[in-house]
Design a protein around this nucleic acid. Structure first.
Lengths: 247, 247
DNA sequence: AATGGACCTTGACCCAGATCAAGTAGGACC
DNA sequence: GGTCCTACTTGATCTGGGTCAAGGTCCATT
């Protein structure tokens, strides 16, 4: 927590990332006000947090686990339109209905703020409003980057893109750097990856096997991944070799 | 203009949509301030308005013509990640670099505001900041809806989705209703449609021919489209038959 | 240690859409 | 009226990824 000392107070350990997403610059009285309207919710893997069309009564952020934003067609085809990792923010201040399902992809703990009072706080706290706009622009950038993945990349490039996103996020959350080999556990099933990438689970499986055979990744078991050379992975993803590290 | 009387002042005819995107509720002094920092720019079809990575010195909105947000891979594959129709807003207040190219897809006129003073105005005018957040959330919703199109729809459904978006936007801009047959000119080449849909131009052409043969659309020349039955088109798009009309 | 079930892998085959290649339509300009 | 050019169409063929089907692996439960 050393990099965000201003966030740290009593219950840091309880919910280490709880305020990072919302208010990196909140003063004490604002933090206390947030404290008042804060509560935690847990979900089991597979549970739906919010149904598309429902009223959303809270905003909040992911403490642990993974949630995903999912759109479904009548015939059952589904597409994940967003992946929420720990510290990511969920919610649409000023809006009522959810435009898509929010699903707990793993066991999930969320730190929530009641929506009405949060909006009121936001209305009289410009820097929170500003922060919300920032976060929304970030989400928009991520969504548009993903449109390129969905529209133009091959299956192999799609897998490599997903792996590099997860690896990067994991590195930044655990404060390990990006140099040297990266090691992490895949938090998604093959099917969830397929839904995120616009593929079938069989194709995901085949491409992961191929990347493994080619030495781009190592696998222990089905989920434990080692990436010996991050640059190589990003080439496989078809990304500009630089730049991507910024996200 | 009758539905937005508060926007109408001297130069309504000159730039009818100029403020609609930004400030439906601005008072006179705010409008005058905007007036001071406003200027127009014109582009020819094919010109690049902003290069990815460039500093953006303005925010603004499209007066006439079409612009598109485009991402390109090193090998030339390109994906449109946004379509800017008249009255749509461009710009990222609080951010400097553009994350993708903005390209004039047809001849284009934009109404721009100088960025620095616009941001200052925004900082002390909460309802403008709020409006910006609203617009960004709308863009995010649109981007995510498009992710479903890119990831899970067939070529035929993709074309139908694009046509119904254009038809709806056209209807709302010209204030014609959605009842009865819809008539409009396609503002995009087959290639631009392909770039938006993650297809090749040949596939676009074939699917348009197929929709025509099946009576879902009528074509006069290559661009003039009549949609006899909007509901039918939306079924072809695989959309929920209701709801979509809201956008 | 056997059973069951979720998750994953691999093979065989198929098809939607890409690719390659001609050709057509229509507008601008001489 | 011809010729050029850009935008589009259509056909023939190929292929990446989908579909269908058969196992395999790893746990949790008994």
């Amino acid at each position: 927590m050393s990099s965000h000392p201003q966030l740290c107070h009593s219950d840091c350990d309880d919910c280490p990332i709880r305020h990072r997403a919302v208010c990196a610059h909140c003063d004490t009285s604002e933090l206390e006000e947030l404290e008042q309207i804060k509560y935690y919710r847990s979900f089991e893997a597979g549970q739906t947090v919010i149904w598309s069309g429902d009223q959303m009564s809270f905003v909040g952020s992911v403490v642990s686990g993974i949630a995903s934003l999912t759109q479904t067609m009548e015939d059952g085809r589904t597409q994940m339109v967003g992946l929420l990792l720990p510290s990511d923010f969920v919610g649409r201040p000023g809006r009522d209905g959810a435009p898509y399902d929010v699903v707990a992809t793993t066991d999930l703990v969320m730190c929530c703020f009641r929506k009405k009072p949060f909006e009121e706080l936001m209305a009289r706290t410009p820097h929170i409003a500003h922060r919300l706009l920032e976060m929304t622009l970030d989400e928009l950038d991520a969504a548009r980057e993903w449109m390129l993945v969905l529209g133009r990349k091959t299956a192999r490039e799609k897998i490599a893109s997903l792996l590099s996103i997860i690896a990067r996020r994991d590195a930044s959350l655990t404060k390990r750097g990006m140099s040297g080999p990266m090691v992490f556990d895949l938090p998604l099933t093959r099917e969830a990856m397929a839904d995120y990438l616009g593929l079938t689970l069989e194709t995901v499986s085949r491409q992961i096997s191929a990347l493994k055979k080619d030495g781009v990744i190592h696998l222990e078991g089905k989920r434990h991944v080692t990436i010996p050379d991050m640059g190589r992975l990003m080439e496989e993803a078809g990304d500009d070799t630089d730049g991507g590290f910024l996200v």
